[in-house]
Nucleic acid binder design. Structure first.
Lengths: 201, 201
DNA sequence: TTCATATTGTACATATATGGACAATATGAA
DNA sequence: TTCATATTGTCCATATATGTACAATATGAA
């Protein structure tokens, strides 16, 4: 009925995600992206409208597969300290295993684009505030469960956890040892009384 | 004896610092910079050789005036917890006071450029590792002074402090309240047993 | 007043940037 | 076989990118 597309849109988004992840948003041009995808810029614009609109889809894909996605998707019966500890463990593992040392696409993009001229700033800010809200909801569940002292300032604690996560992702660009990353994470989590002490600690 | 320069090089570096700080390295072109400085690109290249070479000077200037410079410059007789607490207090104040919410130029640049094609990656990595080494030296002084438990894993603690600093700088791009930033910093520092409890806590 | 010299202005070279316009094309359904 | 239609290919438009080449210029010292 219509002329078929020469490329797969989802694959292209995944490819673009890896390009932006590796080299940053500003360094990833539509021209270079189109050439690497083997399509014309014409097809690119037809499919994605603009580089910014593509980024929105890239960010959504990234969020769905980032190592801290468990904060959103974990079953509500898993103990809070277990979830936090395992998630940070996974983050350390994944970041150290990335041979390119790209860190976190979202964090990199926040640093590059938030509060600049870019129209993507608000999108990224919203994503970050959403992450914090999810961590906060998780900690509130911990209070409701009796896992966490009800006197705790949960908002501040959630911000502190997010700060650790963001800092850890950034450090993973130049601290390449999983062991060192995990020592940072476990030390800080323990200080926040959020570490599940056990085989991992 | 020679034709005088139309512009002041130090002022130009300071101006470039603020442009890169606000919009990022890749988004700051030689053309735009030269036009804003009221000079030709010819003069720019004559004075700075390349955009990358300019960035090196920008980073040095930034380091000399960043709110955590005290880790390098503080007198050796100031107690370690006092220095850490006051420095983080200053960081929170300075970041919240920045109406543009630019965060930290060095952290932003690390996120944007480390492990990309950019030749500036190694320079930034070196700067970060230098910062960590200075924090580690500070903590070792604390051990030598008897301020810090000698059983402490000082390397990990230094990495944790740096992680907090980097995370805090990044969060300051979208958490704009000094009070919230300080709650993050003080909570995490206290967890690391590095907070000087007092009027500020 | 000449001179040495760094800075400046202008042109060159080449490449890339985003996006729009629009005709040619490939497909399956009618 | 015709037809509707989204995709594609090509051209257009305009702007910007980094850097180089080299002659013109402005200055103070000799």
């Amino acid at each position: 009925m219509v002329r078929p597309s020469k490329f797969n849109k989802e694959d292209a988004i995944a490819f673009a995600m890896n390009e932006i992840w590796k080299n940053g948003y500003e360094a990833t041009s539509v021209k270079a992206l189109s050439e690497k995808l083997g399509i014309t810029r014409s097809s690119f614009y037809n499919a994605f409208n603009s580089r910014e609109a593509l980024f929105e889809q890239v960010l959504a894909l990234y969020a769905s597969q980032s190592p801290d996605r468990a904060f959103r998707t974990a079953a509500p019966d898993i103990p809070v300290r277990t979830l936090l500890t395992e998630t940070f463990r996974t983050v350390c593992m994944v970041r150290a295993a990335d041979k390119d040392g790209r860190g976190c696409l979202a964090v990199n993009s926040v640093s590059e684009l938030c509060n600049t001229k870019s129209a993507l700033g608000p999108l990224l800010e919203k994503a970050m505030l959403g992450n914090i809200a999810r961590i906060e909801a998780l900690l509130k569940r911990g209070v409701a469960n009796g896992e966490i002292n009800p006197k705790t300032d949960i908002h501040t604690l959630a911000l502190s956890v997010k700060t650790l996560l963001v800092g850890l992702n950034t450090l993973s660009k130049f601290v390449r040892s999983e062991d060192e990353l995990w020592r940072i994470a476990s030390t800080t989590l323990r200080g926040l009384d959020l570490l599940e002490e056990g085989a991992n600690a």
